[in-house]
Amino acid sequence: MSNFIWFEKTVEYKFVFLAKGLWGIDLLSPLAGNTEVIGDAIVSSNNRYFIIEFKRNYESITSEYEKYIGKKKGYDEAAKIMTGKSGWKFHYIIYGGIDSKSKGFILKYKRYFQNKKISSEPQSAFFEGGMSLSELNEYTQALTACKNGDADGGSSGGHEPSQVNVLALSEDNVGAIIPLDYFQKLKPAVVPAVVQDVEPGSEPVAEVKPQSSSKPKRGRRSL
């Protein structure tokens, strides 16, 4: 068993299989695109909310630093801010590992801004409590304001307040809407330009170069 590998998606599916029976999760909303700046998923139990970031293994957790302004320094600064809010206790990282006794694949977890590798709390109690919807909105606003705005870790420059409604599915496959307020940073579209050949003494004219996958014809100079 020590030679097999798994992926982040393996961890996510394992969680989905266990969520209802082990933690009583009755509402789950995976996040993607701009809203993924919050985390990989928002889940709920009895109308109380939790944010989850999934990772392949413990070593992968350091990739979270790339999402903050200043990377590791920015993460540490964010931790000082966020641990002052009650919601931080319900923001988790869940990752995969190998059980030392059974040698089987298991889920491990930690609070997102907690340095301890594994929580000392029993798994059955880990999703007790949770944030109210208003607390979730307050927490996500503060959290995303600390990040660089790109869920994949890239810098994006500038930001504006944004509100979205995300779809969550209940255990009965019924849809529910979770309204979220957060700071969505916008990525400016960079359009490549070229300068035309002009007569001496005249001003150059910039034009947009159309993107094409076709190769330039032989004998013509490619700009």
Rank of each mutant, 00 (worst) to 15 (best):
F7Q: 09
E8I: 10
K9Q: 12
E12V: 13
Y13D: 15
F15V: 14
V16E: 11
F17P: 06
F17C: 12
L18A: 15
K20N: 15
W23H: 05
D26I: 04
S29A: 15
L31P: 01
L31I: 06
A32M: 13
A32G: 13
A32T: 11
V37R: 09
I38C: 05
I38E: 09
I38F: 11
G39M: 12
G39L: 10
A41I: 07
N46V: 10
N47P: 02
Y49D: 01
E53T: 00
E53I: 01
K55N: 01
R56T: 02
N57T: 06
Y58G: 04
Y58A: 03
E59I: 08
S63C: 03
Y65F: 14
E66W: 04
K67N: 10
Y68A: 08
Y68Q: 09
I69G: 06
I69R: 04
K71M: 06
K72H: 06
K73Q: 05
K73H: 07
K73A: 11
K73C: 03
D76K: 04
K85R: 03
K89D: 04
F90C: 01
I93R: 00
I93S: 00
Y95V: 01
G97K: 03
K103T: 09
K103N: 14
K103A: 11
K103S: 05
F105S: 01
I106S: 00
K108Q: 09
Y109N: 03
R111F: 02
Y112F: 07
Q114F: 05
N115C: 03
K117C: 06
I118D: 12
S120V: 08
E121Q: 06
P122E: 06
S124M: 08
S124H: 04
F127G: 04
F127Y: 06
G129W: 11
G129R: 08
S132T: 15
S132E: 08
S134Y: 09
S134Q: 14
L136T: 03
E138A: 05
Q141F: 08
T144E: 02
C146P: 02
K147S: 07
N148L: 11
D150Q: 09
D152P: 01
D152E: 12
S155N: 06
S155Y: 13
S155H: 07
S156Q: 13
G158M: 09
H159S: 07
H159V: 13
S162G: 10
Q163C: 13
N165K: 14
V166P: 04
L167H: 10
L167G: 05
L167K: 12
A168F: 12
A168H: 14
L169G: 07
S170N: 14
E171G: 08
N173E: 11
N173C: 13
N173Q: 08
A176T: 10
I177W: 05
I178V: 09
F183Y: 10
F183I: 12
Q184P: 02
K185L: 02
L186I: 10
K187G: 01
A189V: 05
V190K: 04
V191P: 00
P192E: 04
P192L: 03
V195Y: 04
P200R: 12
P200K: 15
E203T: 15
P204E: 13
P204W: 11
V205L: 15
A206H: 11
E207M: 14
V208L: 13
K209S: 15
Q211N: 14
Q211D: 12
S213Q: 14
S213M: 14
K215N: 12
K215C: 02
P216C: 00
P216Q: 00
R218W: 00
R220P: 00
R221T: 00
S222V: 00
